[in-house]
């Protein structure tokens, strides 16, 4: 039995959790690619030319979105828990997502 969860704060929680997990999975991969600069510069070059593909740009958009959503979601949580706000937090949550979309969108437009 599952209660209805389609309310903004629950969705904000899921978004925060999923983006956090995805970023945690991304980081080791990221460091591994960076380490190629020392161990296999050839391979790194090939990888870097692959990142010019539109598909890689799209993935970068996703990455920036995750980062932004996690950062603003985190700020929202800190504000919620550390500032004595009884204010409409749903609006804040929605705001966090929209700012994330804005930043990642701006980045996306800049790279294409």
């Amino acid at each position: 039995m599952r209660p209805a969860r389609a309310h903004p704060l629950w969705l904000a929680f899921v978004l925060h959790r999923v983006s956090g997990l995805a970023l945690a999975l991304f980081l080791p991969l990221h460091f591994w690619v960076l380490s190629l600069a020392l161990t296999q510069p050839e391979r790194l070059n090939r990888f870097l030319s692959f990142t010019e593909q539109p598909i890689a740009k799209l993935a970068e958009f996703g990455l920036v979105f995750l980062l932004a959503v996690h950062m603003f979601g985190g700020l929202r949580l800190i504000a919620l828990e550390w500032l004595p706000w009884s204010a409409p937090q749903k609006t804040l949550a929605a705001g966090a997502v929209s700012v994330a979309a804005l930043i990642s969108g701006a980045f996306f437009l800049q790279v294409v």
């Binding site: 209660p3 903004p8 704060l9 629950w10 929680f13 949580l77 919620l80």
Partner: peptide
């Protein structure tokens, strides 16, 4: 608490 807010919503 993860501040999911289901308590407040329901």
């Amino acid at each position: 608490c993860h501040s999911m807010g289901s308590c407040t919503a329901f």
